[in-house]
Amino acid sequence: MIDLYAAGPMEQFEIVKLIPLSLGSLDISFTNSALWMVIGVSVATAFFVFAARGRALIPGPLQSVAEIMYEFVADMVRGAIGSEGMKFFPYVFSLFIFILMSNLLGLFPTIPGAPHGLHTFTPTSHIIVTFTLAMLTISIVIVYGFYKNGLGFLKLFVPSGVPLWLLPLIVLIEFVSFLSRPLSLAIRLFANMLAGHIILKVFAGFIISLLGAGVAFGWISIFPFLGTIAITLLELLVAFLQAYVFAILTCIYLNDAVHAGHH
């Protein structure tokens, strides 16, 4: 009998130190999370630099893919903010690509027998990562909002056409909703990645358990196996969709900073 071992569904989220580093009292060790960020960014950089190297008027297949992604994000920014929002285009594009690469690469199966630190890892399945990205977006919104509109940016909390007696309540609601933006951004992405990977792991765990239970039950493992395939396909969609949602919400929030007065 082969020695089959099914790890717990939380094992895949563990942070493993690969190279211990520290900055003052801060522990900034190079971990498996950092490794997969580096892999994602390297793959994206290599792909885009290679695809854009020719600047061909009639693009090859790689350049076409790169151009489609460019136009996709450019249309998103232009549609949500307008042409004056194009100064945020590099940021939104980098954000979209970073999240997409992180989500997608995490779906690759781990090479069997790889040490724990080299298991496939999804950096965006950690809330601190998604929260940092969300805070980055909100910081840009606040800083640019005040830079562009001065105190007029505060009109964001005062919708026009509201009766005066209702205003305090509305302002309170608007303020709370503004504060909840980074949280909802961060938790949406993190929770989607977490749940997807747990479900994948649980289904894959069924296969191992059934195979381990003996030949008589081994054939039943085809059902969780098919389930795993189906969920993997679903997760591919979710990986793209969540990157898109994060990017489009970033655009919508940036639009508030660019057009604070137009409510």
């Binding site: 801060l26 900034i28 190079f30 971990t31 999370s33 950092a34 994602g40 950690h126 601190i128 940092t132």
Partner: peptide
């Protein structure tokens, strides 16, 4: 305890 490292490498790579 893993937060500083993740934030650091996120900022570097992003």
């Amino acid at each position: 305890s893993t937060f500083p490292s993740q934030i650091f490498w996120l900022i570097v790579t992003f």
